[in-house]
Write a protein that binds this DNA or RNA. Structure first.
Lengths: 103, 103
DNA sequence: AAACTACTTGGCGAAATCGCCAAGTAAAGG
DNA sequence: CCTTTACTTGGCGATTTCGCCAAGTAGTTT
């Protein structure tokens, strides 16, 4: 059980930390298109299922995600529709496109 | 010298990481009101000046901050005016006010 | 130019995070 | 009920981050 945060600053930081990892940010991005079950997320991110599950628990504990169990599957969805505009802001800071810029 | 990022994902993550610490988020918040010199920031955040300086370098390297030297002082300012709206989003995820809600 | 102010950088031990493996839980199917 | 599927949790070594101390750099003042 995650401890309650002592301050609103800590809560904000927990939410931001929950996005501050390549796999977790990718999860957030893919969930912008709608809910996904853990196995779908694993297919996209790769790596051990337990690793994915722990990333999801970090995001859950921060309050970023809601989950719903249906049958054998667990479906996650974003609680934060405004994420998209933040990512646009983030990208506006580093506009030179992507991969190690060749000519 | 910070290495160039291999992907746009890494760049995004670096920017988000640069906000994912209580002192650094507080710095970002205070810079929303306008530029500040390092000593002003130190007065607000507290702790060793070298620690503040390293936090600022993380934010600089991520591209969050611009700096300008004037006289003996170094003034930092946000390169990201859209930060504010993201923090509103973050707070909307945890609306129950602040500090460790006692009964 | 020597002393001072305002920072930055190097170094290091302490703490947090990461990802894999193994083991545990819960719903569905045979 | 026993097995299978889908996921979660515990544990642990490896890497990363954190914050202080000490030392270095760059303008300023005297």
């Amino acid at each position: 059980m995650p401890l309650p945060y002592q301050s609103s600053l800590d809560r904000r930081v927990a939410i931001i930390k929950a996005l501050a990892h390549p796999s977790r940010l990718s999860i957030a991005e893919m969930l912008q298109d709608g809910e996904r079950c853990v196995c779908d997320i694993r297919d996209l991110i790769g790596g051990d299922l337990s690793t994915i599950s722990k990333h999801l628990s970090v995001m859950r504990d921060a309050g970023l995600l809601d989950l719903e169990k249906r049958g054998l599957n667990v479906y996650y969805r974003l609680r934060c529709p405004c994420l998209l505009s933040f990512l646009e802001c983030v990208d506006s800071l580093a506009p030179e496109g992507g991969e190690a810029n060749g000519p």
